[in-house]
Simulated assay, not measured.
Amino acid sequence: MGDDNNWLWSNQETIPSDTAEGQRLIKELLTQLDRAEWATHDCFGIHLAAEEAIVNAIKHGNKQDPNKSVEVDMRVGKERVLIHITDQGPGFTPDAVPDPTLDENLDVPSGRGVMLIKAYMSEVSYNEKGNSVRMVKNRSQ
């Protein structure tokens, strides 16, 4: 990654396409955010974004295929949080997801996750294939 951020905690894990496993990781992440004394509103956003990204990877990326797995890399620092999630799916084009705020898309369930992640995280980038998302949250001042 090239950033020696003196991470207080980091966890790289490959989990099966199982939302219960995702929830276990999110619980651990929240515990670590609490330990690092991150503000409640920051934790709320990070929680939502991490959950969206993990659930999307399992449900949309891997189509809940038990033979596929999700790589989760989470790091918590004093000033930054990094979450990097990669699935084994075909990927998607984030820009092609319908804008959920437009009237014609209000009933379309997809797109909200992508929008939430962008809204709550400081930096969001996808790989070229679209099966990996890297999210950074900078601590609120």
Rank of each mutant, 00 (worst) to 15 (best):
Ser10Pro: 07
Pro94Gly: 03
Val97Leu: 07
Thr101Leu: 05
Asp103Phe: 04
Pro98Val: 03
Ser69Trp: 05
Asn5Ala: 12
Ile54Pro: 03
Val70Asn: 04
Ile58Cys: 09
Glu71Arg: 11
Lys68Val: 06
Asn62Cys: 07
Thr14Pro: 08
Met115Arg: 02
Glu13Cys: 12
Asp3Lys: 08
Asp42Arg: 03
Ala49Pro: 02
Ile83Phe: 08
Ile58Val: 14
Ala57Ile: 07
Asn67Trp: 03
Tyr126Ile: 10
Pro16Gly: 12
Pro100Tyr: 01
Gly22Glu: 11
Met121Ile: 00
Gly130Arg: 10
Ala50His: 06
Trp9Asn: 10
Asp95Gln: 14
Met74Glu: 05
Thr14Phe: 04
Val124Glu: 03
Leu82Met: 13
Asp42Tyr: 03
Glu79Trp: 03
Ile58Gly: 04
Gly130Cys: 07
Val108Asp: 02
Ser122Leu: 01
Arg80Val: 13
Glu51Pro: 02
Arg139Asn: 05
Thr40Asn: 11
Ser132Phe: 04
Thr93His: 13
Leu48Pro: 00
Gln141His: 09
Trp7Lys: 08
Glu37Lys: 14
Gly111Arg: 00
Ala53Lys: 02
Ala119Tyr: 00
Lys63Asn: 13
Asp4Gln: 12
Ala96Tyr: 12
Glu52Ile: 02
Trp9Ala: 15
Trp7Leu: 10
Thr19Val: 15
Gln141Thr: 08
Asp107Ile: 00
Val114Gly: 01
Asn62Phe: 10
Thr19His: 08
Val97Arg: 07
His41Cys: 02
Ala96Pro: 09
Leu8Tyr: 10
Glu128His: 12
Lys63Trp: 07
Glu104Met: 08
Asp73Phe: 05
Asp65His: 04
Lys59Pro: 01
His41Met: 10
Asp42Thr: 05
Met115Ile: 00
Asp73Met: 03
Glu128Ala: 15
Pro100Ser: 01
Asp73Glu: 10
Ile46Arg: 07
Val133Thr: 09
Val124Ser: 01
Val124Asp: 02
Glu104Leu: 06
Lys27Trp: 12
Arg134Ser: 10
Ser69His: 13
Thr86Cys: 11
Gly2His: 13
Arg80Asp: 07
Asp95Glu: 15
Thr93Lys: 13
Leu116Phe: 01
Arg139Thr: 03
Ala96Glu: 14
Glu51Cys: 06
Ser17Gly: 11
Tyr126Gln: 03
Arg75Ser: 11
Leu116Asp: 00
Thr40Ser: 11
Asn11Glu: 13
Met115Asn: 01
Ala119His: 00
Val136Ser: 08
Asp95Phe: 05
Lys59Val: 12
Asp3Ala: 11
Trp38Leu: 05
Val97Thr: 08
Asn138Leu: 12
Lys118Thr: 00
Glu52Cys: 05
Ala20Ile: 09
Val72Leu: 11
His84Asp: 15
Asp42Lys: 02
Pro90Tyr: 06
Arg139Ala: 06
Lys68Leu: 14
Ile83Asp: 03
Thr93Phe: 09
Pro98Ser: 04
Glu128Ser: 12
Val133Leu: 08
Ser17Trp: 06
Lys63Asp: 12
Val76Met: 08
Gly45His: 02
Thr31Phe: 14
Gly113Leu: 02
Arg80Met: 09
Ile58Tyr: 05
